[in-house]
Simulated scan of single mutants.
Amino acid sequence: MNGHFSKLLLITWAILAFSCKPNLILTEVKTNNLTVAENSSLLDSQIVFQYLPFKNILEKDMKRVISFSEKEMVKGRPESGLTNLLADLVLEEGQKEAVRLNLQIEPVVSFFNYGGIRTWLPKGEITVGKIFELMPFENEMVFIQLTGTQLQQFYDIVASKGGDSVGGVRFVISNGKAKNIMIEGEMLDSASIYWMVTNDYSASGGDDLAVFTQRLKLITSGKKIRDIIISNFEGRKIRGVNLTETLDGRITNE
């Protein structure tokens, strides 16, 4: 009797102990969750408090007007006011940077990849925030040295896509190929060497540009394309020069 009772008591205790254990764990987890939530709220508040001054400064800078456009500019093929503007800007700033860094090179052509242009420029005021929308990537300006043959291959790729954002060059698209390629007023020479200004994404072969990975040389500038655009636009504003659309027939269809 006593033995039977002892076994029954042991089994009952085991069942109660086992059934109570999850309850204790559940209660503890619930308590910890509440504590963590309270600490997280406090931590979040501290972060927001410390970040708020920078947030206000950032928002103010994003609304800062850095230029004025005389008309709305959107990207298009074979050329457009926006693609021409950006390609010419990168070439101009690249030439200045090459001199500033004493690189002993002379960039004569540029490429601002079409896919990297993410929005349009409106007519009227252009803000810093709009440039972040236009160029949201952290791409860096680089210089690449290419042979004339490699440039021909590159412009054939551009022609196969119907055009792109290129500077310092003129050519005709014929049957998906680039012909009558003119650089600095002279026909492209396959035996010559040329320097191009572009971005590190394209230089690494992005957007099916494997030809750029076969370049002869590459020089980095340490400058972000977006920062270069902002600085250029600010300079125009200081000089009282508005953004204008330029369609000069640099790429035409036969």
Rank of each mutant, 00 (worst) to 15 (best):
K161T: 13
E138A: 10
T83I: 08
I228N: 00
I144F: 05
I225T: 10
S160L: 01
F18N: 01
G81E: 12
Q50W: 01
D164V: 02
F68T: 10
N2Q: 12
I183V: 15
K179C: 04
V29Y: 12
T31S: 10
Y194G: 05
L101D: 09
K55S: 11
N175Q: 13
P22H: 12
V172A: 01
V172M: 08
Y201N: 12
G129C: 02
K123R: 12
D61Q: 14
Y114D: 07
E38F: 03
S67I: 04
N56W: 00
G116Y: 09
N253Y: 14
E184D: 13
N56Q: 14
M135Y: 13
N23I: 13
A159E: 12
I229F: 05
V211N: 09
I144W: 04
S69V: 08
G115R: 00
C20E: 00
I229A: 07
F111Y: 12
M1E: 04
L216V: 12
G168F: 06
G94M: 03
E125H: 11
Q95L: 02
I105K: 07
F154N: 07
E234F: 01
I230S: 00
N23D: 02
M196C: 05
I173L: 02
E70H: 10
N33S: 07
G116I: 11
Q150N: 01
L101T: 05
V108Y: 04
L134W: 11
V99E: 15
I25F: 09
R100E: 13
T31E: 14
D207I: 08
V172D: 06
A178L: 09
I126D: 05
T83W: 01
G163D: 09
H4W: 04
G115N: 02
T213C: 00
Y155S: 05
R250T: 11
G81H: 04
E106D: 11
G235R: 03
F112Y: 12
V99R: 14
K96F: 07
S192C: 01
R250S: 15
D88Q: 08
S41V: 02
G205Q: 11
N242S: 15
A178Y: 06
T246W: 00
A17V: 11
N180C: 00
I181F: 13
V158E: 03
N180M: 06
L10D: 10
M73Y: 09
S160C: 02
N23H: 06
V99I: 14
Q153W: 06
I15Y: 01
L58A: 15
E70A: 12
S160G: 03
F137D: 02
K161R: 15
L218H: 00
M135T: 05
I117C: 03
V65A: 06
